[in-house]
Amino acid sequence: MDFDFSSEQYLLRDTVRDLLRRECTPGAVRAAWASESGRSPERWRKLADLGVVGLTVAEEHGGAGMDEVDLVLILEEAGRSLLPEPLLETTAVGAPLLARSGSDTLRAEWLPRIAAGDATVTVGLAGSPYVADATADLVVLERQGALHAVTQDRLTLQPLRSVDRARRLFSVTAELGDDTLLSTSAAVARWAFDHAAAATAAELVGVAGAMLDMTVAYVKQREQFGRRIGSFQAVQHKLAETLLLVDSARSAVYYAAWALANDTPDASIAASVAKAYASDAERRANAEALQLHGGIGFTWEHDLHLWLKRGKALELQYGDADLHRRRIADWIYATAG
């Protein structure tokens, strides 16, 4: 038994972390809030050059041929740094979905360009009122139980404004036909949803971890009543409880990645466990981060709200904690007693 990552996996994580520390600072995220597209082609290019964008694309298509376990630590870093670009949609869901269900032609056309950083793919699954990054070159849409792969010439996009302005959301109208059909399999749709939920859980752990670190650093230096507020037991206990939730969430998230990578019988449930637990853990970190920062955390000027808003968005996408609890309950009670 070895429930840990290899030194190579940690090395890749550290490399990505270093890149994002330089390229995805809070200032850069604010720039994404303010810019027209909200996206940095330069940053995407650097991630592609590192092999991150094509991480899950097979080597024959120019990718790194790695799996969900290799990717999960990277997604955690994307969450930690509030990466605006659609790594989750492209690398965690879109590209693997094309590889799994696309025709040879579709795969040969898109996967090499995705891996090279020349094309992005996003997904709009059932249950979501919007599609994130719908300006992507290819949009996979779930409509009436079928998955379609649609190019921009068949789409009409209506931009929606998210409270987290680094998120670029659109309502999408598509001209679908037999020529856009990717899959009618419910198992494939479920597979896509599981991947999206598990990847979102990984980002949530990154967001929550960043908020916890910021808050611990803040209470170590903020003084009231003549002492650092981090010395108060009321403050210490909130942060201890939050750490327990965030660190436990990592167990769930890492296992879900392994279960999906190995296509285990419990992979769907593992994804639901991860998304439910990580959503709740992030919710707690979100609450305590603002509460313990006090008034300064409620200002536009302080960076905390960038994390608060991303965290809240991710809590609710691809099934909130309650949806995943319902899914788990249905599975428990469907199993023979």
Partner: peptide, 19 residues
């Protein structure tokens, strides 16, 4: 809902012990 949450908590505990 509470049974599902208990499943989540026991499963996460098992995984954390394995780590």
């Amino acid at each position: 809902r509470r049974v599902a949450q208990s499943y989540i908590e026991t499963r996460v505990y098992e995984l954390t012990v394995q780590r």
